[in-house]
């Protein structure tokens, strides 16, 4: 009962930290810039491609940020980051939605034959689509209601993100002409973020942080047992 009351209060009086506010505003900016540039004919000579690239990049960046939240907490005790994990992931999915809309509607005019051909022919389209199909249920079940309904299975389900984001990077690597250094940099960041989630690695870093805690993190309570 007590927990429910606290939750209700939080819902009635949502207090955004400055960081949360920044994340919410920041996530919309690329979309507004895109619409502004589109209405001012500032999307290069190949506007559909430019819009596709921009929304894809934005989606990937948001997903990487979302993946970075947990390690930021583990490594630096940056607890505020945990609250950003879900909105950043959902915004990432939103940009994938816009990305797909541009692809299917604006680019291919909903010509299903053409779309099928390109999905079959282009391996990068296929992995991109696979990544989207994995992230979609995560977006749908990101609400508190679904969290409760699924219980422990929710955590298992949401581990799909550890596969979906690497697939998104593969999607990027496979579509670049030859110089794959930039997509590989994304890949390296994602690899590090996933590496830090391996239980042993995670434990090593969190215990390291507890040992070093007093030096830089005076707010952090020492656990009774290390």
């Amino acid at each position: 009962m007590e927990a429910v009351r606290v939750q209700d209060r939080a819902r009635l009086n949502p207090r955004f930290t400055p960081l949360q506010l920044l994340a919410h505003i920041g996530a919309w900016i690329p979309l507004f810039v895109l619409l502004w540039d589109a209405s001012h004919h500032q999307l290069t000579a190949n506007p559909i491609l430019e819009a596709t690239h921009r929304t894809g990049t934005t989606a990937l960046v948001l997903l990487v940020f979302s993946l970075a939240c947990t390690p930021l907490n583990v490594l630096f005790g940056f607890r505020q980051a945990i609250k950003l994990r879900r909105p950043l992931g959902v915004y990432g999915l939103m940009y994938i939605g816009v990305h797909l809309f541009i692809f299917a509607v604006l680019d291919y005019g909903l010509d299903l034959d053409m779309i099928r051909d390109t999905v079959v022919e282009q391996r990068f389209v296929l992995v991109g689509l696979a990544s989207f199909l994995m992230l979609l249920p995560l977006g749908v079940t990101s609400t508190r209601g679904w969290m409760k309904r699924l219980g422990k299975r929710w955590i298992k389900l949401h581990r799909l993100v550890y596969l979906a984001v690497p697939l998104a990077v593969v999607h990027y690597v496979w579509l670049v002409k030859a110089d794959i250094r930039v997509p590989l940099q994304y890949g390296a960041v994602v690899a590090i973020l996933l590496f830090l989630r391996i239980p042993r690695v995670r434990h090593f870093f969190s215990s390291l942080r507890y040992r070093l805690a007093p030096r830089f993190d005076s707010n952090l309570a020492r656990p009774s047992k290390v």
Partner: peptide, 19 residues
């Protein structure tokens, strides 16, 4: 002859809509 990165069956004509 398909190319791994881009569709070679259709093209986008610069300055025009659609494929």
């Amino acid at each position: 002859r398909p190319h791994p990165r881009w569709s070679q069956t259709t093209e986008r004509r610069i300055g025009e809509a659609g494929r």
